[in-house]
Design a protein around this nucleic acid. Structure first.
Lengths: 236, 236
DNA sequence: ACAAAAGTGTTGCCCTTACACCCATGA
DNA sequence: TCATGGGTGTAAGGGCAACACTTTTGT
């Protein structure tokens, strides 16, 4: 930033914003992928994303791509910068640096869309196809970040709808980490963590069997606080 | 990444790598700043950094700038990507996206240098000048990251020389967080943390007064592990 | 002998874990 | 009334903070 004054020395580079969009469907962690309709890597699956516009902020570009690609109007439950990838050979078209973002979404009934991608869909993380560019690495980093952040933040609520039972919240942890958590201890821990959830006073619809649960909504702790319990041996 | 095929749509952007370089001198956390010798912000202090070269990886650019700016030949004790800043108006010359890196260094006797910066120097973090561009924000983020990472990694050793006493390591935490730590409990915690430090068998030079300490070196845990103790109320 | 820093022991408290138990509902 | 999941109680164990105490050095 301080050196190399002459404009000729400035490296002209394309900047893209790519997204690792995670959600939980049917007790499985899933990622949003799109099929490329153009070269390079035509026909191959990739992370959704696109070029940052000339006067657009990076986060705004990520949010825009997220809406375009998913059709979601609601703002993403959680969107954070994941990292920037700029190895010289990562895009055969030339120097392209991508700023990757991590998005966590509730499983709302808006699964797909598609502007210029041939197709789009949710993929089980245990069965993702080979990805274009270095998107495989980016996905791995995103997953690792998501798993880690559940541990010391209240982000797990980002995977849930407005109102949820504590068992829904527990299911998020169990899905992302694998393994079971003790319902009793989980409840105490969450309720003891300031700003994690707050009661709505409502009660869930009558379940198939068993006692209906109290409903909660997200608390004011956006991403702070030192909450959760993680069973031994679930640390990747 | 998937859309906007036509090359004309690609936003041409300059990419820089800027560095938040932290070290500890005289029980104070200090940051390396350079004085800009050119417009824009000529004469103002800024983070060290510069343009990423056409065929250079981002991390390589950061490392190169670090060497150029500090004259250090040793590889940085720790260098990690901090985040990417690309608000449209952040550089008056045009669209410049900067990838910021965080470096932690031991206080080796190589304080300054200067390739194309007018001057360079270490600044006490309680008394930093107004910085050029959005470098003030970047510095804040770097500081926050450094403080947080000491808590759940073994990175504190990055601030120390090859061999150090446990009291030196404790001083790092006390400096970065403020406040005192119990020497007895600190020792136990560090020694109980697998891969944090390993004994050299050597003993420190006779101090002015008091019993000389055993010397240790960094253990194999590069940045993992869940170590340290943080006194209540030191969380910014 | 004394001061000062390194290093060890010990105790009480709190948080977590594990699991027994009660509650509310549909069938 | 039984099965099922929601929710409360509680006792044992581990880890940590606090602090007393011992060791090793220079002066």
């Amino acid at each position: 930033m301080t050196s190399r004054p002459s404009a000729e020395l400035i490296t002209n580079t394309a900047v893209t914003a790519d997204l690792v969009v995670l959600t939980i469907q049917e007790q499985r962690l899933r990622v949003l992928l799109v099929e490329r309709s153009l070269e390079p890597f035509r026909g191959q699956w990739a992370l959704p994303g696109g070029f940052v516009l000339p006067d657009e902020d990076l986060a705004a570009a990520a949010e825009r791509e997220l809406v375009e690609e998913t059709g979601l109007t609601h703002p993403a439950r959680h969107l954070e910068q994941l990292g920037t990838y700029g190895a010289p050979g990562r895009d055969p078209r030339g120097r392209v640096v991508t700023v990757a973002y991590l998005a966590l979404l509730a499983d709302l009934p808006t699964p797909r869309a598609g502007t210029d991608a041939a197709d789009a869909g949710w993929f089980d993380l245990t069965a993702t196809p080979e990805l274009a560019f270095d998107h495989g690495d980016i996905l791995d980093d995103g997953l690792e970040r998501a798993r880690a952040k559940l541990e010391y933040t209240t982000l797990a609520t980002s995977f849930l709808a407005e109102e949820f039972a504590l068992s829904d919240l527990r299911a998020v942890y169990e899905t992302v980490w694998g393994g079971d958590l003790d319902p009793a201890n989980f409840r105490r821990k969450v309720l003891a963590t300031d700003g994690f959830v707050e009661p709505t006073g409502l009660v869930a619809d009558p379940p198939q069997r068993g006692r209906p649960a109290q409903l909660y909504r997200r608390g004011p702790a956006s991403t702070l606080a030192p909450p959760i319990l993680r069973p031994e041996g679930t640390r990747s």
